[in-house]
Nucleic acid binder design. Sequence first.
DNA 1: CTGAAAGCGCTAACAG
DNA 2: CTGTTAGCGCTTTCAG
Lengths: 335, 335
Amino acid sequence: MNIYDIAELAGVSIATVSRVVNDSPKVSEKTKEKVRRIMEEHHYTPNVFARGLGLNSMKTVGIICPDVSDAYMASAVAHLEKSLRCYGYDCILYCSGYAYEDKVEAVSLILQKRIDALILVGSNYAGDGGDQATEYIRSAAREIPVFLLNGYVRAPEVYCILADNYQAVYDAVTDLIEDGRKRILFLHDSTSYSALEKLRGYEEALGDNGFPVPDELKVFVRNNIEMVQSRLQEIFREKMPDFDAVVASDDGLAVGAVKYVRSKNLRIPEDVSIIGYNNSELSICCEPELSSIDSRGKELCETAVEYMMHYLSGHPIRHKKVVPCRLVKRNTTNF
Amino acid sequence: MNIYDIAELAGVSIATVSRVVNDSPKVSEKTKEKVRRIMEEHHYTPNVFARGLGLNSMKTVGIICPDVSDAYMASAVAHLEKSLRCYGYDCILYCSGYAYEDKVEAVSLILQKRIDALILVGSNYAGDGGDQATEYIRSAAREIPVFLLNGYVRAPEVYCILADNYQAVYDAVTDLIEDGRKRILFLHDSTSYSALEKLRGYEEALGDNGFPVPDELKVFVRNNIEMVQSRLQEIFREKMPDFDAVVASDDGLAVGAVKYVRSKNLRIPEDVSIIGYNNSELSICCEPELSSIDSRGKELCETAVEYMMHYLSGHPIRHKKVVPCRLVKRNTTNF
DNA sequence: CTGAAAGCGCTAACAG
DNA sequence: CTGTTAGCGCTTTCAG
């Protein structure tokens, strides 16, 4: 059943049917009514390929993330998909993995699909922002608009929607200091843009409060509960851990810290105060429940899609938009 | 840059270029080489819309799941995407939500995209298998092959790939009984096909071992850690909980049970043995770590995609394929 | 307000 | 092995 069939049945030309499908204002209500009825009756649906060919668009946006099975990204993809659908856009999903070559490959492949826009989820794509490492993003942006969710690359046609991770960590660390903590451990697992921002928040908060920033308190470790435990075990050996607070760049890391601290029979938060990141399910699963910085995934996603729609309808938009985070207090902090 | 440009530059006809693009065997290596070089040089990529129009396929499969932000589904989507990509297929993702009307709508919308096949993730789509409730699936299957991941609907062109949830629960309960447990609580949160299978495994294992199946030990509760705690609190009030084991149909439920049991100062697993489901991150996050039934999401997904490819290349396939589960023992059981 | 006709870029049947 | 040509189903001028 195609447009010709409908045209014939309705006794009009295919042009008219096309206009009806696209709800063009220059068709009389009467004709519209008639054509629509026929379409309904015959369950006609326009062929998206043909339409795509003509319009050079299928109202589809590409979403690339390193790994949807990661809770944070899964949630982001869910929010993005939902928002996009509200505007009538479909999503094609590509999980690229974390390796540089794979990311480049992912972008290159997805561009061939002639998507209307591309969203890169997570700051892994921006890397540390080095020009070389982000050339593939700039290059993609020469073909279609690219939106970075929680990443930052300064280039034409790339639009960045970011959580204010710097400020969030800065504030958290400051709160801890005001609470009397002297030795604040920072757990991180990445050198992505947002990871670096978090680190900067940690360092500057310490500095601004007159504290040194000792290297041994910044521990870089894979985001895996057991790994964190054994890493801390290894660092502090037999001697008692000499930190009284932990700020982690992800809840998984924080849970590892919780487990380690408890295994040393220290009290949380009395002896050590712990703050996680992302306010994920993990944060209410462990014992005691984690305080956690909520990076506002939902707002970020909705903002990104709104921006995109604005852009796609021909309006100019800013290159960077920052959304504030929010600390969710639970049982691992006492302020 | 289209096929005509390339043809002209290479001094051949568009048919030849097309053949080269599709790696047809009936082009001389020499010509192929020449055309390929030109294509490379000019960064030519075939227009997928035009190709789609001609072939009536864009090598794309639709994936619908109620909610990708759910850990189990996220992981499934990740595995599916990866496997599909290996075969050169793209994924368009649709999160339908759990409501019946929304699921019907999702299927109907995604069919309009002329996907090559449809995958429905999770047994929510099969519902309790009632004919009425699954008509939309049968109907979709009349247009394209439909694959149910962990759901079951008996109908032509719908193919079901299932974890053996019945057996898994049956075995777990039997193990608990052999360990001397007398009052085994069953926590569930759904009436989907697989949920029902789990329940059946529980009931039959009890029955086959000469135990009664008391209604008060089957508790149906929303999958939310706090909800489970307060629900159990409400059921057992001031009196001591009188169960000595728990089998949950999801790790989230099991974590709720762990928290409840610990709040009553009972020992795990000595006083109560607890088994979760899905072997998710939650299971190693709580204290003590959960034993959990691994429903083999990865194998399920890979099997599904293999099946699909087999089908798409014209071979007949079976309507149902069952993958066994596996109990991962950790600290909440002592057998 | 409506219709005729020219593409959009590619595939595949047919002819050589 | 290669070229010609007729669609695929829709959008969009351009005329009327």
